[in-house]
Design a protein around this nucleic acid. Sequence first.
DNA 1: ACAAGATAGGAGCCATAGCTCGCAATTTTT
DNA 2: AAAAATTGCGAGCTATGGCTCCTATCTTGT
Lengths: 208, 208
Amino acid sequence: MARGPLTSPRKTATQERSRQTVNVLLEATARILVKEGYDKASTNKIAVAAGVSIGSLYQYFPTKEALVAGVVERHMREMLDLVRADLAEVATGPVDEAVRRLVAAMIEAHRVDPKLHRVLVEQIPRTGRLENIENMDRETHKLVRAYLEARRDELAVSDLDTAAFICVKTVEALSHSAVLGEPRMLRKERVEHFTDEVTRLIVRYLRG
Amino acid sequence: MARGPLTSPRKTATQERSRQTVNVLLEATARILVKEGYDKASTNKIAVAAGVSIGSLYQYFPTKEALVAGVVERHMREMLDLVRADLAEVATGPVDEAVRRLVAAMIEAHRVDPKLHRVLVEQIPRTGRLENIENMDRETHKLVRAYLEARRDELAVSDLDTAAFICVKTVEALSHSAVLGEPRMLRKERVEHFTDEVTRLIVRYLRG
DNA sequence: ACAAGATAGGAGCCATAGCTCGCAATTTTT
DNA sequence: AAAAATTGCGAGCTATGGCTCCTATCTTGT
């Protein structure tokens, strides 16, 4: 086990009790991040909000960065799972249906916890472990590229990588800024219209 | 003039000497931001880098936030000017030409100072005065919407606001992530190809 | 030349944030 | 039940960062 110098906390929680603590800490971190923003979210505040002492906090998370990274990873995985699930269901279907589904899934994914999402993408410094916040995009890229490859002959696309890049980034950006910047665009009656438009944008690009 | 309590710096520089100081400070801030990132860019470091004392710094910028806001505003204006200029030149031309120009301009705008741009969008907390980092997008939106309105009868678009929203966000996002994430996509021989693709995406969406 | 305002300078205050460390409580093992 | 390991606690250390305030220098107007 011999952890390097004494200054290397973050045991891997083995007992149930400690797993709970880790969980509570992550949830409190998310809450505080939303409520206070990244700068003002001090580890002390987080510990208090979680009902856990700072000592305990630092037993599982060696730095504030690690703590936030935990929240980021959990949130991104949650979003990615949504997209992946929906995409799998239509992987063998026709293009327009698949695209529509991707768009809808992406919007839903951004609605999981918009306030948290906002803080994570807008306020978190992307340094050290936080650099790979964009992992979600990379994963999605792979999935979409694979789909496009399978349906290549139906598509009027010169270069699969460019096409996948354009599809993913476009849908992601539009979902993102619609959810965070134009929520009225997504009010019940209008979601469908918006989804239609984005779908049209992508489908016409992919087809001839 | 009577500034409130004595604790209200940020005089408006009147003499030439001080305007120079302000300028030097903004430039140093940009450099330090790029080199150190937002967190580690302390006002003291900035003052040293600028060859100006902290006292002087705080005479023109009441807070670190104000200092960074200065850099943000300058950078965004620079980018916006590029787009605006190009867009004005093709405002009366045909749609596909105009779109192509918008795309090219947006890519160029993102190439003004990519490293600084990255720090500004990725690391700056959007609180207080920094909230309106997205002003550039709003401005661009207006310009594009006006153009679309003028050419309405050539377009197969149901709702101008949605269309403008989609165009701007899409082109912005694609330029942004191409410059920052896929620079090889923009190597001399390939820029044109990429521009073509994005243009196609938008034009097909706007036309019938 | 002199006064008055504007500008530059920088030592140091104050607050806070991240984090440590020794000890107590709890759970597991023998 | 006693020993061993794991987990929890929180006062407080250390560093640093934003910012103040008072002094010195320079510019401008008379």
